[in-house]
Design a protein around this nucleic acid. Sequence first.
DNA 1: TTAATAGTGTCTCTTAGACACTATTAT
DNA 2: ATAATAGTGTCTAAGAGACACTATTAA
Lengths: 251, 251
Amino acid sequence: MHNGHAALLSRSRAIPALPPEGSDRHVVAVDIALFTIQDESLKVLLVKRAVPPFPGWWSLPGGFVGRAESVDEAALRELQEETGITTVYLEQLYTFGDLDRDPRGRVISVSYYALVDWERFRLKAHSSAKGGAKPAGTRWFSVNRLPTVAFDHRKIVTSALERLRNKVNYTSAAFQLLPKKFTLSELQRAYEVILGQPLDKRNFRKKMLQLGILKDTRERQVEGRQRPARLYAFTEARVIKLQEKGIIVPF
Amino acid sequence: MHNGHAALLSRSRAIPALPPEGSDRHVVAVDIALFTIQDESLKVLLVKRAVPPFPGWWSLPGGFVGRAESVDEAALRELQEETGITTVYLEQLYTFGDLDRDPRGRVISVSYYALVDWERFRLKAHSSAKGGAKPAGTRWFSVNRLPTVAFDHRKIVTSALERLRNKVNYTSAAFQLLPKKFTLSELQRAYEVILGQPLDKRNFRKKMLQLGILKDTRERQVEGRQRPARLYAFTEARVIKLQEKGIIVPF
DNA sequence: TTAATAGTGTCTCTTAGACACTATTAT
DNA sequence: ATAATAGTGTCTAAGAGACACTATTAA
């Protein structure tokens, strides 16, 4: 649509060029905080840097935005290259634009956070990760016990966590961290590790079932020598808004 | 702090250069949706484009990010150049990174929204706007009656509005649209034009006063031939969080 | 005195949150 | 039978929202 206008206008008047190479052009990077739930705790994926700056330090997966890709595409590409994962919930977080973020020079970073369920990750991860650019190592870290990380990536993780904690309160984002079928106990544990708080079992189940977004699959999950749990599925394909209560919400 | 590390590391190992000029570097712009309340309606400031692309069309104030300024600084600078305003509430919104946003070529746009009160704007505006780059015209448009705008600026305004509507529900952002001293009726009208809904007077006043964030200035505002209204002031210097109720908020 | 806005309380209903026991299965 | 987790209901208190009249001033 904009291209249509452009074509139209360019016939009558020349379109001025953008700032030329070498003047006000910038290196733009993407950095992604990928979360999952594993061993009853919320984890974020870090990669070990092989080259300076910060060689040997842990950092978020990410890289430079190329010339022929959108910023979102760059984020997906980097995630795919460094983890092999292709289908994730991905959401833009914030753009960090200070001058001294990177010791190499001025780099503007568009940060994202992403959610995967642990099972899906284990299946796909590394099966298609790029050989040549393979990082020295990738590891999940509990968000409560992060190592020292490179650049301002600590700030990005903090900001992603804050967003995630807000988001699970009024959207169905938490479901992105679970497999397609899950028990209510698993769902509750997901909320608990995200929020960092224990929740009341009866109140939790009451609220979740009231929302009408869960489908009883009629299947059971046998996990040990105890009563098997019902498996539920989320009814929506996408992350949806569950409510929007505020101080003043006359909608 | 990162500079400290950089200095340390550069002594032992060379820091690789960023992508060179002319390869994967990008033009980065800022676009700002500046809101105010005027004549009982929520307005956004648009500027008339003097040069292609989209000559004669309305667009959001904005421009390219320079080499020696942070992205936030660029947003403030553009706002100052095009409106003369220096002190506003400014918050980053979203980064639009698609390839075909601009007919001139690939431009990544970091969008912001800003809030000013009409009185402050009338005093400062244009008193210090840059002469040379002065746009053909700037005008306030009611958000309900926007003209056709250039680029994807419609999307930016929509996104800014959505953010503003959410934000006033759980923070004190709406106060940024009012002068230092205001009546409760003015505050209510601000919420009404932002939300696009009438609100109940008694419930509104009850809730606002309960929050404990308003100081009675003991002054009155005489406005016509009716009972003068109390003038209140907001007790906080900054925008604060008023509440954070969600589905599950055990904090 | 009148026009015009400021200012004020109560009641109902919904919802949040505290709280403890029974059910079902594998071993 | 026992260990281990699944699953279930009630009560209370707080808050949201509906609703209408009196107060005060300038003109």
